[in-house]
Design a protein around this nucleic acid. Structure first.
Lengths: 205, 205
DNA sequence: CTCGTAGGTTACTCAACCGTAGGTAGTGGC
DNA sequence: GCCACTACCTACGGTTGAGTAACCTACGAG
């Protein structure tokens, strides 16, 4: 995969071209969002003409779908690995750390995923699913506090939300390393879970 | 403000028309996002022709700006009021509750705000600012745990992230009331803050 | 050498949509 | 009952951008 920007119009194999287009496309979609991004610009940045994109991906939607798919795959893999073993607390920490590192390492991919709501929701649900299947990380805490299974996805959403927002903040403010941010997030999340009161009463208003 | 959809082409005053267009526009922008939304559709849904929109708001961007501005104003006001007084814990609960209710009551406004990243970031910062000025809600907890002020915005971001994601989840899953969801979020957030360890060590990896 | 094919290009069509020019009808003041 | 003004309309220009048709060219196999 050597599509350096050295001016010379290199002729790439189909696979290489696909990979390049996925990378370039990810960058463009991340910058402008799906609607505002144009196939022309993607082609231009890749130093090819538009029909090539159509040749490989069928169109704008096709390219976008592949990009999102690969990115989801990647994130899920990172988190799944991180969460695979250890005590519940270690899992929370590892997952948080993995996500923050992902955000730092692939900001454009993160931007694409977090830009459209359906994808984000899907990601959250998928992670909740992963968490559930891999080891039921929160079950012990829930059980202790007497919560029913109905609330589990809520807490999963809350965790993803925390990590996502702090991740974005971390990109904007380069003052704090992802690792340090991850520690804070993990601490907040874990301590919150650990000390959940029994059936918090509804609040008046 | 009585622009009922009764078929008859009512002639509205400037103020009424503006209000109507803000509402209709909010709905359309919420559904499609800024780029995909069209002035034509907004005009169509409002049962008027396109130039009217340009007359009142100068263009697509102008209308969008007004919508976002009003929405921000509204949210900030809700949260500010909620967070104005009480113990720190009560403030966290009240803020969480206020936000969840907002999400439930004005889903389209919430969608507009949460759709574009800059606005969301701005909102978070603004809320952090509000929290800071109104009473330094977290200061006591931070001080106890020995954190510096640099980490405060991180926790603000985390809280907004939690509430935002759970809010979205609450819209999609009508199974849980905003009030109940707010209790859970507040409990998680508060317990997390309350039990922050002293300087969580960095995690290996 | 030549021929087939994979990789790439130019040059278009068609539709959507932002924004505007210029004209029309209801309505309040006097 | 006329005047002026406000609200609103039809109809268009110009641009952008998705998607396609038809043609071109490097290059390895035989």
């Amino acid at each position: 995969m050597a599509f350096v920007a050295d001016g010379t119009r290199t002729r790439l194999s189909a696979v290489e071209r696909r990979n390049q287009l996925v990378e370039v496309g990810r960058a463009v979609f991340a910058e402008k969002g799906y609607e505002a991004a144009s196939v022309e610009e993607i082609a231009e940045r890749a130093k090819i003409s538009k029909p090539v994109v159509y040749e490989h991906f069928g169109g704008k939607e096709g390219l976008y779908a592949v990009i999102v798919d690969r990115e989801m795959e990647y994130v899920i893999e990172q988190i799944s690995t991180a969460i695979a073993e250890g005590t519940p607390r270690e899992r929370v920490e590892a997952a948080s750390l993995a996500f923050m590192r992902y955000v730092k390492e692939r900001p454009s991919g993160f931007a694409v995923l977090s830009r459209d709501a359906p994808v984000t929701t899907g990601l959250s649900n998928l992670l909740a699913e992963v968490a559930h299947r891999v080891g039921n990380v929160f079950r012990a805490e829930f059980k202790r506090a007497g919560y029913d299974a109905r609330t589990a996805p809520l807490y999963a959403q809350a965790l993803i939300g925390m990590v996502t927002f702090v991740g974005q903040w971390c990109i904007d403010n380069t003052r704090m390393s992802p690792d340090e941010a991850a520690s804070h997030v993990a601490a907040l999340a874990w301590m919150g879970l650990r000390h959940l009161p029994e059936k918090p009463e509804l609040l008046g208003g």
